[in-house]
Every structure is written in structure tokens, then in C-alpha cells.
Amino acid sequence: MDLTRRPRRLRGDGVRGLVSETSLDASDLVAPIFVDATTEERVPIESMPGHERVPISEAVARVEEVLATGVEAVLVFGIPESKDERGSRAWAQDGVVQEAVRRISAETDAYVITDVCLCEYTDHGHCGVLASEARERWEGGAHDGDGDGLTVKNDETLDLLARTAVSHVEAGADMVAPSAMSDGQVGAIREALDDAGHENVPVMAYAVKYASAFYGPFRDAADGAPAFGDRRHYQMDPANRREAMRMAARDAEEGADVLMVKPALPYLDVVADVRREFDHPVAAYNVSGEYAMLQAAGEMGWLDVTESAYESVLSIKRAGADLIITYFAEDIAAALE
């Protein structure tokens, strides 16, 4: 037996770190936070143990908690005080995200990214302007699906997303992240930001966003579940890998500065594909369902949550993500310390 090649030689404690191929740092992580205009106190998110909705008055304190762990960036989601047909609170000057971002930007050194979508703000819970036929079916009590596939009017939604992005930046956001999966959203937002004098503000595109079963806890957290139907006709089919390259290429051509894949763990092959094909920084979103399932296993005593979370996020980095949005950000950063 030839034992001249012994990989174990490089697995000892003294040398292991020197030959480690992938490193994970708190600066790689982005922590999502939820700001709720309907509450005056922190509200635990039951399906996401350890996370809360915080009132606007607590937004700065929440971000300071994140910064204390070494994580430098946050992704802000808002729950508005009211909803309507077009989601007008999404771009309101006194909207929940706008108010929170003003305070966070003024009082902390956090890098502030904002989610740009309408689903949390529309009364129907879809990511844009609802077609009249679909709204009539919904108001008439038909909740059995999307029917003719005209639930969201793509082109009419673009202007609203652009207005929302500009309002976030004017409030102090450092980066905007459009997530509606509307065709042309990156180009519309890039043009609007440039026209408003914000040509140096980057756009992180939810370029490859799948219609995933792993979003359930988030929809509880952000109060953004569709009132009827689902989002499969404007989010990607989980079966499709080649389409992801077309989606990423489109957003890159429209001016995206960062390309995101969402979710992360079931789509590590896609993360690796995007990393290989594009020079852009690559983001991956370790979503709420991925978080919740590890927490549930930890509560049962089946897994060590911190170790399994670290290994999961490390796998996302190894697949090629430059930055990782994760609900484990604070826990992992604390463990790294």
C-alpha cells in the first residue's frame, strides 16, 4: 500500500487554518431587520425564534445590536401602518422604511440596504399593480389561483418600484435591492436614481429569485403573504438552472452592481454558476425557511444550531457568494469572535 500521500498531514490544528480554502468573516454578512409601523413595542416572530419586529423608535437600537457583533450591514424591511391597492406607503416620504432609514443613517455607521418591493404595502399582497380582472376575482371571493396569469401588470409596476427606490435613497439608504422580479426593474430603478442625482448608489438585484417553499416564515415576519394565488408566474421555476443565467445577464446589462441568488442552500449550484459567469459581486440570501428549519432541529436537540448555521453559511461562501444575507448573521459573527 502506497501511503506517501497522506492528506491527514494538513489537518492538524497548527496547519489547518493555514491551508483552509474558504474563510468567513462578519463583514461578509448582512443582517435583515424588520421595522413595524403598527406597533410601539418589539414583537417576537414566532416562526423565526430570536427575531422580532421592532417599532420605528427601536430601529436604531436594533441596528446597534447588529453592529455590536461585528456585522456591518443591514437589510431593512418595513411593515406599513396601512395598505392600499397600489402600495402607496412604499414610496411615502413618511413611510416606515424611510423614517427608520433616516434615523439609522443619522445615528449609526451601518451600511444600510433597503428591500424595494410592494408586497408588504399592497392590500392584495402581490408585488405590483394588480390587473383589474384579477382584483375583481379576488374581491368577488375567488381565491383559487392566478387564473389568466395577469395578476401583476409588470410595466405599470416599474414606475412605482423606481419611486420607492428613490425615496429610500433620499432617506439615506446606501444601496437598494429590488426584489419584485418585474422585468426591467433594475433598468427603471437605475435610470430613476441617475435622474435624481444618485448615480453613485449601487443596486443589488434579486436577479435569480425562485418561487420557493422556503419563504413561509418571512411572510409572517413582513406581513407580505399574497391574499390569493401565488407568485409562481413572476418568480422563477425551481426546476430551471439555465434560465438563471439569462436573468442574471439581463440585470447585469441593466446596471445591477450586485447579483443575488435567492434562496441560497437549495440553489448552491446556481450560486456557483453566477460566480463563474459574471465578474459582479455575488450575493446569496439564506432565507427564513432555511433559518427556521435549523432552529426547529436545534429545539429538538437534533443539531447544534450555531455549528450547523456556520457550516451552512460557509457552504454558501464556498459556492461563490461574496456577501450573504442571513438571519444567523449575529449568531455567526459572535461565534467568530
Rank of each mutant, 00 (worst) to 15 (best):
L3F: 13
L3T: 13
R9L: 13
R9T: 05
R11K: 05
D13Q: 04
S20E: 14
L24N: 06
A26N: 03
S27I: 01
D28F: 00
L29S: 11
F34D: 01
A37W: 02
E41G: 11
V43I: 15
I45Y: 04
S47D: 13
I56Y: 03
I56R: 03
A61M: 03
R62A: 10
V63Q: 14
L67S: 11
T69M: 05
E72Y: 00
V74L: 02
L75N: 04
L75R: 02
V76A: 03
S82P: 00
S82V: 08
K83I: 04
D84T: 06
R86E: 14
S88K: 02
S88M: 10
R89C: 04
W91E: 09
W91T: 06
A92G: 01
Q93C: 02
V97Y: 03
E99W: 07
V101T: 11
T108L: 12
A110E: 09
V116E: 08
C117W: 01
C117G: 12
C117L: 06
C119P: 01
H124I: 04
H126A: 05
C127M: 06
V129M: 09
E133T: 09
E136S: 13
E136I: 02
W138H: 11
W138Q: 04
E139Y: 15
G140F: 14
G141K: 12
H143G: 00
D144I: 07
D148F: 05
D148P: 06
K153M: 11
D155E: 15
E156L: 12
T157Y: 05
T157K: 01
L158M: 09
L158H: 08
A165M: 03
H168A: 05
A171L: 06
A173W: 02
A173T: 11
M175T: 03
V176N: 01
P178Q: 07
D183I: 14
G187F: 08
G187C: 10
A188P: 10
I189G: 10
I189L: 13
R190Q: 05
E191N: 14
D195T: 08
G197P: 02
V203W: 00
K209A: 02
A211P: 09
G216E: 12
D220C: 06
D220V: 11
A221C: 13
A227L: 11
G229M: 06
P238A: 10
A239I: 06
R241A: 06
A249S: 15
E253W: 14
E253N: 11
V261N: 07
L265I: 01
L268I: 10
A272K: 11
D273K: 13
R275K: 15
D279A: 13
P281V: 12
A283C: 15
E290Y: 01
Y291S: 00
A292Q: 15
M293Q: 12
M300N: 12
M300I: 06
D304F: 09
E307C: 00
E311A: 14
E311S: 15
S312L: 02
A321N: 03
A321G: 08
D322P: 06
D322K: 13
F328K: 01
A329Q: 03
A329H: 08
A333Y: 05
A334S: 09
A335K: 03
L336W: 04
E337G: 13
